[in-house]
């Protein structure tokens, strides 16, 4: 299996904290596109017409939102399951807190990791502070990917666990602006 590297700017750890100010027009653009881009010849013209601004302004504002990372990407999102990626594992790792930023970036850069975060521990029941989602066709293949992460972490890995999803109980698109 080979993966294409995502090239989006969110590849780096995001600078936490500050939110970019969005005005009413930005919010209307988000509202019009949050459930998807229209499949028509000039989709940004349609949005512009509804809002009462020019298509060039819609394009410019969306471009700015992309620059600031408010729009991560404009792209197609495949359905993992439909494409045969049926083994979806949340892998969790206990790594030293003072090394986690460096290690997290390296794990996140692996081509098969879709999400990688630092999250809190709950001792003594939960010792893991680094979370990385991996997607594979089979559990066997997923476990191979897990061992690649273990190899990368080396002796910084003080323990890990793999939580396969067994059932989707709920999955709704998030409404960002209602």
């Amino acid at each position: 299996m080979s993966f294409v590297m995502a090239t989006s700017p969110v590849k780096q750890a995001s600078e936490s904290g500050h939110n970019i100010h969005l005005d009413d027009i930005d919010r209307k653009i988000i509202q019009a596109t949050q459930s998807g881009l229209a499949l028509v010849s000039r989709p940004y013209d349609d949005i512009a017409k509804d809002i009462g601004i020019s298509a060039d302004e819609v394009i410019m504002r969306m471009h700015n939102m992309q620059q600031y990372g408010i729009i991560r990407r404009i792209a197609a999102v495949p359905n993992h399951y439909a494409l045969g990626y049926k083994a979806n594992a949340m892998t969790v790792w206990d790594v030293p807190d003072d090394r986690i930023d460096e290690l997290g970036k390296r794990v996140g850069a692996l081509e098969f990791v879709s999400h990688c975060y630092h999250r809190p521990r709950y001792l003594p029941g939960w010792r893991y502070n680094l979370f990385a989602m991996v997607h594979a066709h089979t559990r066997e293949e997923a476990l191979e990917l897990v061992s690649r992460i273990a190899g990368l972490l080396g002796e910084d890995c003080r323990g890990h666990d793999v939580l396969f999803s067994t059932r989707i109980l709920k999955k709704t698109g998030m409404r960002l602006i209602s």
Binding site: I30, L37, A76, V77, N79
Partner: peptide, 21 residues
């Protein structure tokens, strides 16, 4: 591809946290 659910969505992907959520 959207109708038969091969794709779950197509369009801009927003980072809701950057929007204040």
């Amino acid at each position: 591809l959207l109708d038969n659910k091969t794709l779950s969505r197509f369009g801009p992907m927003y980072d809701a946290q950057k929007m204040g959520g």
